[in-house]
């Protein structure tokens, strides 16, 4: 077939209309893309420039040297990451049985369980943290219960303990919903088959259910970790000066010290932590896809 033949067969392309008209169906994307480029990407680039001192003259890494040369800031970064990991692990352990129960229930029971998760999710973080203040403070509800049973009272507020409990409460719904949406798609007959073939409940869980729900576990864990390292309200209300995390430090540098370049640099550190975790997730997913 010659080139002329192909040209004769293919429908005529209106040559008078250029690239613009062929792109015209994409006009619908324009408002949102423009909005995000201008108000989302723009500010992030400016934040980067600010952290490198580019708003004055030249590039310097002074702000980053300040962070990485000071043991206090390094400790805050380390403790932010440790807190994130701890909350993620606890959420996974507590959330898994609940997610499984949701996936295996139906009707009213299922709706009630979902409501039990969604309502706290929608109650403001400030309000929930206040609830934990009432529960955990020195003369709070928990100590009232403990002392009425003649048990020693606990002082969880203003320590990592109280902060961790409250953060687990804030993050748990995200973990449960991620796990439940994967477990939903899991065919119960797989477990029945394993049981019929003589596997114990634990063996079925370890060899069938857990491997097949790894996707949801990973999605939930990444979500909880990234949300956790970025949250500061709970730490602000339940913590003290000895429980400092990166986002709260950024807020203080900005609001109290008015040190914009330093706040910008710490923002970039936080962004790097979040991005590396997301990159890790994308990489794991690709490896898994190749393996299958």
């Amino acid at each position: 077939m010659t080139t002329q033949d192909i040209q004769a067969l293919s429908p005529a392309v209106p040559t008078s209309k250029g690239v613009l008209s062929r792109l015209s169906p994409l006009y619908g994307l324009l408002p949102l893309v423009a909005f995000l480029l201008f108000f989302f990407v723009g500010p992030l680039l400016l934040n980067l420039a600010e952290s490198l001192g580019m708003t004055q003259a030249g590039i310097d890494f002074a702000q980053y040297r300040r962070i990485f040369a000071d043991i206090y800031y390094l400790r805050v970064i380390a403790e932010t990451i440790i807190l994130g990991v701890a909350v993620t692990v606890i959420c996974a352990i507590i959330g898994y049985p609940l997610a499984y129960a949701i996936a295996r229930s139906s009707g009213l029971q299922k709706s009630l369980l979902i409501f039990a998760i969604v309502i706290p999710l929608l109650v403001n973080v400030v309000v929930r943290s206040f609830g934990w203040m009432v529960l955990l403070s020195g003369k709070g509800a928990l100590n009232w219960v403990l002392s009425s049973f003649g048990l020693p009272t606990l002082s969880l507020m203003y320590h990592w303990g109280g902060v961790t409990i409250a953060l687990v409460h804030v993050m748990l719904p995200f973990m449960v919903l991620s796990l439940a949406s994967t477990l939903e798609t899991l065919d119960p007959r797989l477990e029945e088959a394993a049981a019929v073939l003589g596997a114990s409940r634990f063996a079925t869980f370890r060899r069938i259910v857990l491997p097949l729900s790894l996707e949801g576990l990973m999605t939930g864990s990444i979500l909880v970790f990234t949300l956790c390292v970025g949250s500061f309200v709970t730490v602000m209300l339940l913590g003290s000066t000895s429980t400092m995390v990166l986002p709260l430090l950024i807020y203080q540098q900005l609001n109290i010290a008015s040190d914009w370049p330093f706040a910008a640099a710490m923002g970039m550190v936080l962004l790097t932590i979040v991005m590396s975790v997301l990159w890790l997730q994308a990489r794991l997913r690709r490896t898994k896809w190749r393996a299958s």
Binding site: V33, L36, N47, T226, L227, I250, W260, A263, L270
Partner: peptide, 21 residues
């Protein structure tokens, strides 16, 4: 790209937007 604000800590969004605006 359109969903990317979902994974950004809001404190970074807030500080960047403050610098920008």
């Amino acid at each position: 790209f359109m969903l990317s604000p979902l994974s950004l800590p809001t404190i970074i969004l807030a500080t960047s937007l403050l610098f920008f605006l």
